[in-house]
């Protein structure tokens, strides 16, 4: 069979992935590892310093949105919550309780139902 008919991407695409680090190894073709010249070539380690984006997204306004903003955004941005499928109140409650019991969220006893109700209001079924 003619493997040349399969699409390949150029080594330059790989090189473009560098993030302030460098290898002493020459550019290599990842499509043909058998032709790599120096499997023992040692990387040159360079200090890496990056900025990770922050999210300015808050939960949609509404009753008890402030509770969600205070409690949920401590550990994670809102995106994954807002991208859930519509969940039942029981499913949302299970998520809130999981955040407390499994992940140590500091949601007080008295706020579990309010946060559950809020999440169900914004994306419930």
């Amino acid at each position: 069979m003619n493997s040349a008919s399969f699409i390949r991407y150029a080594g330059t695409a790989v090189a473009a992935t560098m993030i302030g680090v460098a290898c002493t190894a020459p550019p290599t073709s990842v499509t043909d590892p058998g032709r790599r010249t120096a499997p023992s070539a040692a990387p040159t380690w360079v200090k890496v310093s990056v900025d990770l984006p922050t999210s300015g997204v808050e939960f949609p306004a509404g009753q008890d949105a402030d509770l969600a903003n205070v409690q949920c955004l401590i550990c994670h941005s809102a995106g994954m919550v807002l991208r859930q499928p519509a969940l039942t109140k029981e499913q949302w409650r299970a998520e809130v309780i999981k955040m407390r019991s499994a992940f140590g969220a500091l949601i007080p006893d008295g706020q579990v139902e309010a946060v559950t109700d809020y999440l169900h209001r914004i994306n419930g079924r």
């Binding site: 993030i19 990056v50 984006p53 941005s77 995106g79 991208r83």
Partner: peptide, 13 residues
Amino acid sequence: FPGKGPMILLRTR
């Protein structure tokens, strides 16, 4: 995001 081209954003943090 550092070291990344266009990526589908599911969560920022």
